[in-house]
Design a protein around this nucleic acid. Structure first.
Lengths: 181, 181
DNA sequence: AGGAACATGTAACAAGTTACATGATTCA
DNA sequence: TGAATCATGTAACTTGTTACATGTTCCT
């Protein structure tokens, strides 16, 4: 039931509507939906309803066009904290990109090389993009204030891309050793 | 439909039964199920059935206890290759661990620190374990032969743990700056 | 003989995606 | 006034998990 906790975590930042939360998931902007968890509005609205029934959130404000803004309750905050600090022995993982990495060796060497080169290029490009965004965030940020929300996640993304980039290059070398020329 | 492709990828290594494939997913041994994709036998058996209907695999051998060994067909290999080399713009991602990382900043600083310390320790421990396994693999491997299956995935795991470890330490420093003492 | 591991399957439930459906407000 | 965006919801379908169910072979 991680969608519930994702929503609790986002609401911990401040009240938001289902529509706001849907955008937080949808972004191609290095947000939660790109790296951590995906959800569409058709799951988010019913889940918010159930969470309200369970007392984890309340509608704190209604706006135009039927907008309902949800806020965390103390119960919700407690549940979020419990989930964050409790490490389950086995967690949900479903990652198509990593799956491709696992299966690189099922391809013929030429195909594998092509795939790895594509991955390396893609990572380099994304890395450059994300790095410039993060540099900007850091430049605008007063070092005496708390880290801006999302900065830690951004750093994770950065290091993630670096790791995959390095891995692709390492793999190309390893594969290359078997086919001289 | 990534389960299908995960199965095709595993079968590219050689024929296997549903039971064999189930173990490949289930392992806590740094296998596909720990990092890339999870599946239980109750999904695997029906999927193998459908794949056989679609001509992607065939039962190449039957054994004791009703064992059915599946092998890739040419069609299956073509479909696997198509999927591997075709980069979709948006891929499935669902990762509870990364979700926690995204939400670290929803915790109070003390809790966040505790969580990050736990992550750093956990990564260091897993890294050490995996490194010794990979060192062993490398020691037993003739450098003139192709890279052993799983070695690239193992390297990915290694670099992944290193990245997360580094990230946790960096984040601790960043958080620490806001709360002196 | 009896337990562990091998081996396959189905059913009920939970979670997520895509498509369908509707309506209000804002802005040019 | 018309298009874009805001805003919420449901229904049908797909995918995955947990629980139920059964039978065989190997090893001690």
């Amino acid at each position: 039931m991680s969608l519930r906790h994702a929503l609790l975590g986002l609401l911990a930042q401040g009240p938001a509507s289902g529509y706001d939360l849907t955008r937080a998931f949808a972004g191609d902007d290095g947000g939660i939906g790109q790296y951590a968890w995906q959800a569409g509005h058709s799951r988010i609205y019913p889940e918010l309803g159930k969470m309200a029934d369970a007392g984890l959130v309340v509608v704190d404000e209604t706006g135009p066009r039927g907008r309902k803004s949800y806020a965390l309750t103390d119960e919700g905050r407690t549940e979020l904290r419990r989930w964050m600090l409790h490490r389950p022995e086995r967690t949900t993982v479903r990652d198509e990109t990593v799956l491709r990495m696992f299966l690189v060796q099922s391809l013929e060497p030429d195909d594998a090389r092509r795939l790895l080169e594509g991955i390396a290029e893609h990572c380099a490009a994304e890395l450059a993009k994300l790095r410039s965004v993060m540099d900007e965030v850091d430049a605008e940020h007063d070092p005496h204030e708390p880290v801006p929300f999302g900065r830690l996640a951004g750093e994770y993304g950065l290091r993630q891309y670096e790791a995959v980039h390095g891995w692709a290059l390492w793999s190309l070398e390893r594969l290359g050793a078997t086919v001289p020329g």
